[in-house]
């Protein structure tokens, strides 16, 4: 096997996989505190990239401020989504709740389209547009930023989950929402916080990855679906497995493009997604077990 080609696929695969992993973690944590899978998750990554590029390139802000600005936009929109669209349908059937998040994702796409137009935006690399070499493979220096930022965000997430009150509250909610509320966890406030943080984290991921992949108004759906695979591999319970799943999808995508065909890349990724969903979804689990699960949890 050609080692250089292998590395040239592996390393960028990890880079995009990092973004999917962050989206996946966002999916898992939001789903656990709100009981709803937020299908707009990928749009925050897109918006973060767009907002950072626009602020830095068009409005001429210093890079750091542009990124902070993008994160602020993500946080505000995340909190608004929870407050304005999810809180009112909390008691509605899950069918309505999920569809509402689809509606929000369309709004966010439309919002980006109106604000930034159809042309992809770019952002200069945080420490220049240079490259470095690993075993013959050429990598943009920006990859280091993506990896580092992902590690930092994940470390912060797990640290918060493990060692802080808020983290304990989130974990309590994910184990038993009802019991957590009875124990005095202010679930409404917690949800707003989690959605805001997850919006900001998504926006940061989008900003950091934009120098490599550009940013376009319709990119959110792809981040969303691929991050979703990561989340579902973690069974919507374990953030750690979700990270593995996200990076795994990044690798499938990169190797599929490199070894099979770049044109069929998305076909391979979505094919893997579909196969995985069908296997997990109980296609091979028939009869009463599936029925009992359905009775216990009608829409999920």
């Amino acid at each position: 096997m050609n080692l250089t080609l292998f590395l040239q696929l592996l390393l960028p695969g990890i880079t995009t996989g990092c973004v999917y992993a962050l989206v996946a973690v966002g999916f898992v944590i939001c789903a656990n505190v709100s009981g709803v899978v937020n299908l707009a998750q990928g749009e925050f990554v897109m918006l973060g990239g767009m907002a950072a590029s626009w602020l830095a390139v068009t409005a001429g802000w210093p890079l750091v401020l542009a990124i902070l600005g993008a994160m602020l936009v993500g946080a505000a929109l995340g909190a608004l989504q929870e407050k304005l669209t999810l809180a009112p349908v909390r008691r509605a059937p899950p069918f309505i709740q999920v569809t509402t998040t689809v509606g929000v994702s369309i709004v966010l796409r439309g919002f980006a389209l109106v604000l930034f137009g159809t042309d992809p935006l770019s952002l200069p690399g945080f420490s220049g547009d240079g490259v470095f070499f690993v075993g013959g493979a050429v990598m943009p220096v920006q990859s280091l930023w993506v990896w580092g930022m992902t590690l930092a965000l994940l470390a912060a997430t797990f640290g918060v989950l493990r060692y802080t009150d808020i983290g304990r509250a989130v974990r309590a909610c994910s184990i038993n929402l009802q019991a957590a509320r009875l124990m005095g966890v202010d679930a409404e406030r917690l949800r707003v916080i989690v959605f805001a943080v997850s919006g900001a984290a998504g926006a940061l991921a989008g900003a950091v990855v934009t120098p490599i992949v550009l940013s376009s108004w319709d990119a959110g759906i792809s981040y969303g679906i691929k991050g979703f695979v990561g989340a579902i591999i973690g069974g919507f319970r374990s953030p750690l497995l979700a990270v593995a799943g996200g990076i795994g999808i990044g690798l499938v995508e990169a190797f599929g493009a490199g070894y099979i065909s770049s044109g069929w890349k998305d076909f391979i990724v979505y094919g893997v997604l579909l196969a995985y969903l069908l296997i997990r979804g109980g296609v091979f689990r028939v009869g009463r077990a599936a029925f009992a699960a359905a009775l216990a949890n009608p829409m999920r």
Binding site: V37, L39, P94, F95, V98, V102, I221, I225, F228, I232, G263, W264, K265, D266, F267, Y270, G271, L273, L274, L277, L278, G281, A294, P298, M299, R300
Partner: peptide
């Protein structure tokens, strides 16, 4: 598949056909 999983699966199917 149910709920949001079906959303994703059908979207995936659609995107595959576009490819």
């Amino acid at each position: 598949l149910r709920g949001f999983v079906l959303v994703m699966a059908t979207l995936g199917l659609h995107l595959m056909l576009i490819v």
